[in-house]
Amino acid sequence: MSFEPKILGIACNWCTYTGADLAGTTRLHYPQNVRVVRVMCSSRINPSFIFRAFQLGADGVLIGGCHPGDCHYNTGNLYARRRLATTKKILEFAGLEPGRLRVEWISASEGNKFAEVVEEFTMQIKNLGPQSKLKIQQ
């Protein structure tokens, strides 16, 4: 059986989650590997969420927020952007492929982009194979 990765998505309520809904309303088909957790703003995402996701066995983590400058809370995603860049570095330091964390700015009108990103990222994670570096074995 081919490898079907588990990907955790964390999306902000106003842009990316709405964009994902739009992908649905327009009936765009994309792989079902990403499961999305909704938060109000990408700035809510604590780096520990991402580490925890990998510990729980996520093969990839996809973060979605509003385009910089278009944040529903004015500046939230700017903080998120910096924080996630650092998180990526730490993950790399911990030995994880940096390609397993992806941050995308997807607006509420970009249903197409959401579907494309999921498609691409799923492909990318499939190529990287299962993640075992941080996964806690039970």
């Binding site: 938060v39 109000m40 703003c41 700035s43 809510r44 939230g76």
Partner: peptide, 10 residues
């Protein structure tokens, strides 16, 4: 407060 959660994560 508008409930974005930024403060909680910092």
């Amino acid at each position: 407060c508008k409930g974005c959660g930024l403060c909680a994560s910092v």
